[in-house]
Design a protein around this nucleic acid. Structure first.
Lengths: 247, 247
DNA sequence: ACAAAAGTGTTCCTCTTACACCCATGA
DNA sequence: TCATGGGTGTAAGAGGAACACTTTTGT
């Protein structure tokens, strides 16, 4: 009765930030059922190959859909309910992948990318779409659950580690950084307190460059300072600039 | 080249607290090699069975070794390096489990139990030992890494959720609670500040019962108050009573 | 001139930290 | 009576929270 015929897959919630809201990369399932045609979106994923670790498999998926290597990647949970894939879907998966298995266990990952023209072009050529996370109501199988789990992990991580900077361009304004926190955490942050804390911490450095062609006072661009961040972590730095905390 | 022949196992770091230090449950590997005999300790684990989720498999392992159901259980990371199990060990595993596979991916869990006479008797009848975590220098395969990962997850969790109470008897003294935090986090905590904070929070309730037959002023027993804890979480309660924080 | 976002200080108050002595009990 | 751990208060400082107006630019 030992289970030896389990396939392992990875599914990635790839997050991006467009300056306003948090987006996630979704693709259409590549096989389709008789009647399902409208809402068959899913997270990008793949079966793991021989001699490949799970993070390697996740990286492979990410490179396939974004063209990028060295994306920030973090494992979340494992989804192992025996009935997470219906029999019908199982048939299709086996046919599609040319395998024979009774069960697929999947490992969730989240990835963070800097959204820009190049990436968006690349992903749309691949048939993938960046969808506002808040607007997603359903995905195939348990992908909505995997996404929720990934978002929850990101929320925990963003207030304790410098992952925010993985979602921003190299040069960014303080307002962009603040909007990112607000979008990810779903909270309002006081702008004066935010600037005070983030600037005093020294983890971002002003570049002297400013926005151009904006119909308001141009904002200065900053860069992330890894060295100071690591030092700040040692000195018990925390990003507690949240106004309203909800569990 | 699709990997279909991967076995999945779970390995559990079962933590217990004896009032002084943090212990973990270790067993001797049940198959042995020619020359390895001294240091062949491992975490309890098992292959997952058909129609069983990973947490179910972990619970099964825990019940086998402790006799307990409803143990606090939390998934940590997945260990998927293709070479994490040497060829030699692989042969043994296949023979031992009566399976045929080229690869074993394992999912780490940590579990928290209330150490008492009954449990200790049960586990020693099962040939398992409670070993001080700080004293462990080596385990078979990558089990030391799995243990380190579990401990790190516990350290994060204990300052943000009520898991501490899973490691203490129903009735406990404030000193026991403080020692637990000190043991898990490896820090010193100021006793007056600790009492102030923990009592003011209301998450523990005095029972009016006191220690007996101790050669000093008897300490009062307290119980954990789940209701207040949940309320406190909403009110943005944090357990920040650490003197020295190290990353 | 006006719309739109950038940028800037102060006060209040809560929470953290550091610190030392008396108490109750069993041996 | 002594050894052992239980139990208590205060003051100083740091950090968090609340809050409104001026500046710069493009249209």
């Amino acid at each position: 009765m030992i289970e030896t015929n389990t396939a392992i897959s990875v599914d990635c919630a790839v997050f991006g930030f467009d300056g306003k809201s948090l987006k996630v990369l979704l693709i259409k399932r590549r096989y389709s059922f008789d009647d399902l045609s409208s809402e068959d979106l899913k997270l990008p994923g793949a079966m793991i190959l021989e001699n490949e670790t799970l993070p390697e498999a996740a990286s492979r998926v990410l490179e396939e859909f974004t063209g990028l290597k060295d994306i920030y990647l973090k494992q979340t949970s494992i989804f192992s309910a025996p009935d997470r894939v219906s029999e019908k879907e199982m048939e299709w998966i086996c046919k599609f992948h040319g395998i024979n298995t009774e069960r697929v266990v999947t490992v969730g990952y989240y990835a963070l990318v800097k959204l820009n023209r190049g990436i968006i072009d690349y992903t749309s050529r691949k048939g993938a779409r960046w969808v506002e996370v808040d607007s997603i109501r359903s995905l195939i199988m348990d992908h909505l659950e995997i996404l929720a789990d990934a978002l929850s992990a990101l929320q925990k991580e963003i207030v304790q580690t410098p992952v925010a900077f993985e979602l921003l361009p190299k040069k960014f304004t303080i307002t962009q950084l603040q909007s990112l926190f607000e979008a990810v955490l779903g909270v309002d942050i006081d702008n004066r307190n935010f600037r005070k804390k983030i600037l005093f911490s020294g983890i971002i450095t002003p570049t002297g460059e400013y926005e151009r062609n904006v119909a308001h006072k141009p904002a200065q661009y900053y860069v992330f300072n890894k060295t100071v961040f690591r030092k700040a972590m040692k000195d018990r730095f925390r990003l507690n600039f949240i106004n309203n905390w909800t569990y």
